[in-house]
């Protein structure tokens, strides 16, 4: 029996070959092996969305995915949203302009769900945003400011 497996995965545009324990989740591996701690751990049952990352274009809860499952896949985490020189993308800018982050702990997950939504639906309605981000709990309950930010980012992208 092999406790670890070598996987090839593209994380934020960089190809990586990682030896991962087969029973560790993508969340564990991102935080502990890859050193990307922007992805957060909270409920570990797929309810809070703090660990949301984008895998092959879709937002997923990285706490419910074994790291071995991303072998051959492309993963984007919150660290992958800004440009390499640190310039923020329109969604991140809008989050700051609208006051979306309060404590900030849920924000990486909110951003990833929002980015996935905008990638798929560039002109979302308020209801689309509420639905698209319903899997991301915010206990500061900045939902209205988060929604406003997503809509504002969509507006910027349209121009």
């Amino acid at each position: 029996m092999r406790d670890t497996l070598s996987i090839e995965v593209k994380v934020n545009g960089i190809d990586r070959s990682i030896e991962v324990p087969v029973h560790h989740t993508l969340l564990d591996v991102l935080r502990e092996e890859v050193g990307l701690t922007g992805t957060k751990e909270c409920c570990v049952v797929g309810e809070c969305g703090a660990c949301t990352v984008i895998v092959d274009g879709r937002p997923i809860n990285s706490c419910l995915m074994l790291a071995v499952e991303v072998d051959g896949a492309e993963v984007t985490t919150v660290e992958g949203l800004a440009a390499e020189d640190g310039r923020l993308n329109p969604l991140q800018e809008a989050f700051l302009d609208k006051g979306a982050p309060q404590c900030g702990f849920c924000i990486p997950g909110q951003l990833m769900s929002a980015q996935a939504l905008l990638d798929k639906k560039p002109n979302p309605t308020v209801d689309d945003v509420h639905e698209g981000l319903a899997g991301n709990l915010c206990r500061c309950a900045g939902y209205q400011q988060i929604t406003a930010a997503v809509l504002a980012a969509a507006e910027v992208e349209r121009q």
Partner: peptide, 21 residues
């Protein structure tokens, strides 16, 4: 002023260091 949050940059880039980080 409705200034941007001080500490906001780290919060939208994943670089804000919380204890578990």
């Amino acid at each position: 002023a409705s200034a941007r949050r001080v500490g906001g940059y780290g919060r939208v880039t994943g670089h804000q260091e919380y204890l578990a980080d």
